[in-house]
Simulated scan of single mutants.
Amino acid sequence: MQEVKQSSGKEAVDELSRKYTLLRKEIGKIIVGQDKVVETVIISLFSNGHSLLVGVPGLAKTLLVSTISDVLDLDFKRIQFTPDLMPSDITGSEILGDNRQFQFNQGPIFSNIVLADEINRTPPKTQAALLEAMQERSVTVAGENFPLPQPFFVLATQNPIEQEGTYPLPEAQLDRFMFNIPLQYPSYEEELQVVKATTGTHAMDLDQILNGKEIQFFQKLIRQIPLADNVLEYAVRLVHKTRPEGEQSPDVVKEYIQWGAGPRASQYLVLGAKCHAAIHGKYSPDIEDVQAIADYVLRHRIVKNYKAEAEGLSEEDIIRQLL
């Protein structure tokens, strides 16, 4: 694996675009289709954000996350969320050592990539332990603070069906996720490839494309990418339009939305647009880059009212009208 040259400006953006192409090629050896999903997850990694993957069972959500960890030289842990999972099962706990002194035993949260599988299957107290670590990037146990390894990403999965016995994430906790990424069923041709590849004996070897230091370098690079005033204003205005009490809100929002997106949505729209532009070889984002990731940023940050539910209007329908 070649080291990224710690250059700046256009050369660094070109290198990011090249590395992204290599990542997509390696991930494509295992994951068939789901191109937009893979792209959006990678954008969240380079933007130092967390993502929530939503899809029915069997759509390779877990396989996607483990494949991404394989092509990145990073530590990976998987946590299966269940109703009896305790906060200490995530963060770790103090145990009595051989010297009769308490010592901290780190939990699976101390990893670079954490897969929170079926996050809505565990009670709010345990969800809060994970979400606190996502926000603070550290864990506090017995009054002592333990920083998490960097880079640190949480990729959570959620099943949109079988909601009996689940604990839906509150809006304030959903806001911690940069993206809400829906997974769709594969096409007929894609499913043929999946079945053919997974029912034989051939095992695929993956090359590691990036390490932790390189990812942190690209994360800093994304923030240094210049942004035109009109693009910044478009992103903020788009978020303002989702708020029913706002002066700029269109009729569809006033009629169907109960709560709109907060300022964090504006921040993630800008960061996501910068990264979307960079991975496609552009040195500064435009309005099209904001629109490309707007659906994933806003979907879980707007709350529909009863009228929208009654008329079968989805968040995507409303966002599409805003764009």
Rank of each mutant, 00 (worst) to 15 (best):
E255K: 15
E255A: 02
Y256K: 04
Y256W: 07
Q258P: 00
Q258S: 15
Q258F: 14
Q258C: 06
Q258W: 11
W259R: 05
W259L: 15
W259Q: 07
G260Q: 07
G260Y: 00
G260I: 03
A261I: 00
A261F: 01
A261C: 03
G262T: 04
G262Y: 00
G262A: 11
P263A: 02
P263Y: 00
R264Q: 12
R264E: 05
A265S: 10
A265C: 02
A265L: 03
S266C: 05
S266E: 01
Q267H: 13
Q267P: 01
Y268F: 15
Y268A: 05
V270N: 02
V270M: 11
A273L: 02
A273G: 05
K274L: 06
H276S: 15
H276E: 12
H276Y: 12
A277G: 10
A277L: 10
A277H: 09
I279W: 03
I279P: 07
I279T: 07
I279V: 14
Y283T: 11
S284A: 14
S284Q: 13
S284N: 09
D286Q: 10
D286P: 00
I287L: 09
I287A: 07
D289V: 06
V290H: 03
Q291D: 08
Q291L: 15
A292D: 12
I293R: 03
I293F: 08
I293V: 15
A294F: 08
A294T: 04
Y296N: 13
V297H: 02
V297W: 06
R299F: 00
R299L: 11
H300K: 04
R301A: 06
R301S: 08
R301E: 05
R301V: 00
I302P: 02
V303Q: 13
V303N: 03
N305D: 02
N305H: 05
Y306D: 13
Y306S: 14
K307D: 12
K307R: 15
K307P: 03
A308P: 01
E309R: 11
A310W: 10
E311D: 14
E311A: 13
S314T: 15
E315N: 15
E315Y: 00
E315A: 13
E315R: 11
E316N: 13
E316C: 00
E316G: 11
E316W: 00
D317W: 00
I318L: 13
I318D: 00
